[in-house]
Simulated scan of single mutants.
Amino acid sequence: MQPTKSQSLTTDFFEDLYRENPDPWQFATSEYEAQKYATTLNALPRDRYESAFEIGGSIGIFTERLANRCDSLLSVDVSSIAQEQAKQRCQHLNHIDFQIMSVPDEFPDDYFDLIVLSEVGYYWCWDDFYKAQNLLVDRLNPQGHLAIVHWIVDARVLPLTGDEVHDSFLQLVPDQLTHLHSLTTDKYRLDLFEKP
Rank of each mutant, 00 (worst) to 15 (best):
L180C: 07
R69S: 14
R48E: 14
L9Y: 08
G60H: 05
T40A: 12
L93S: 04
S51W: 04
T161K: 09
V149F: 01
R156N: 12
D128K: 15
Q133I: 01
L66Q: 10
T184C: 12
D167Q: 15
Q2H: 14
A67L: 06
L66I: 07
E194V: 11
D47N: 15
K36E: 03
F169Q: 02
R19I: 06
P174T: 03
E31K: 13
D71T: 14
V137I: 15
H179F: 06
W25L: 00
V165L: 05
E84V: 08
P159D: 00
K131P: 02
Q83P: 08
V149Q: 07
Y123V: 04
N21C: 11
R65F: 06
T39D: 13
E50I: 12
C125T: 02
R46I: 03
N94K: 11
S168H: 13
G60P: 04
D12K: 12
L190D: 00
P104G: 03
D109H: 07
Q83K: 14
L192S: 06
V120A: 02
S80V: 12
I96D: 07
R46F: 10
D191I: 02
S6T: 15
A132M: 11
E33Y: 07
Y37D: 09
N68C: 11
I61G: 00
I115L: 02
Q7F: 09
E20V: 09
L190W: 05
D12M: 09
S8G: 11
T178F: 10
V149T: 10
E33D: 12
L177V: 07
S75L: 06
Q171L: 12
L140D: 03
Y111A: 10
L41S: 09
D71C: 10
L74P: 01
I81N: 12
R189M: 11
F129A: 00
E106W: 05
R89W: 08
N134V: 05
V103T: 11
W151A: 01
H150L: 04
F13M: 06
E33M: 01
R139N: 12
T29K: 05
Q7C: 05
F107C: 07
C125Q: 09
R48G: 12
E164H: 12
I152C: 02
D175W: 07
P45V: 01
F62L: 12
I55S: 02
H95S: 08
D163L: 13
Q88K: 14
